[in-house]
Amino acid sequence: MPDIIQIEHLRYVYNAGMPDETVALDDVSFTVGEGDFVGVIGATGSGKSTLIAHLNGLNRPTSGRVLIDGRDMWQKGEDLRAFRFLVGLVMQYPEYQLFEETCAADIAYGPRNMGLSEAEVAARVREAAAFAGLDEALLQRSPFELSGGQKRRVAIAGVMAMRPRVLVLDEPAAGLDPEGRDTILSQIRDYHQKTGTTVLLVSHSMEDIAKYADRVLVLSSARVAMYDTVEAVFDRAPELLRLGLSVPQITQVFLRLREMGLDITADVYTVPYAVKTVQKALAAKQQRKGGAADAP
């Protein structure tokens, strides 16, 4: 399958020529295959938000190319809007973009801009609302009377309703309580599994990335530091810590255990897997002890 996103030597400079000129992205290259779930992680100011704004044509690269589905979006004659419908972008704190009188009308804004028929728009609104876990009664209410978490889900539904082939979410769970966090992220995973949409999830939380993503893109001071499967990236935990990023707490525990001399793998990043690893290690230990069955 061809790669849906190809980034080639992307460089982006803010305020070029001013005293406060800053390089936000420097020689960034990577590809994302169709149907992947990629976590994007990096310290504050590492260029995550700038990078995803490029996927949607909101930033124009200073140099380098951004190819979506094999086409360069900044080539002459290309319609930027077509790329925006191809790559749906959910910005940070997307609830601030709500403006319509009812949630349904707000979710319909994107599909309507695509020039779809009213019947098609209505169908998409219902579908997206279901993915975002919004019930019918809520759709007829004003978005401004909803709770923060509900608003957030309306905003995400507004992008899902455009049926993009790539869904990019910038910190979709930021500022929500743990329950709201899990709800939104598992809805995104379900959406990914049911529709096969490629998903890029920007997050600060290693736990979230470990739980939901297949691959991880680590950005550090405007460059790609690592891009690999979740296992391979967390296996380089000491490097992540040096980049100012944390690893999941459970991985930290296992790293310490290994440092203390225990014969244990350190590529543990979810609790269920941790339980299995501990059981396996205990079983191995008991076998080694042989007859001494009463040993702890």
């Binding site: 909101l58 601030y96 973009q97 801009n113």
Partner: peptide, 16 residues
């Protein structure tokens, strides 16, 4: 800054 953010968000939803 706020205006630019909102404009970007709506542009991402296909605003002309």
């Amino acid at each position: 800054e706020e205006t630019e953010k909102i404009m970007n968000a709506q542009k991402a939803r296909g605003a002309l």
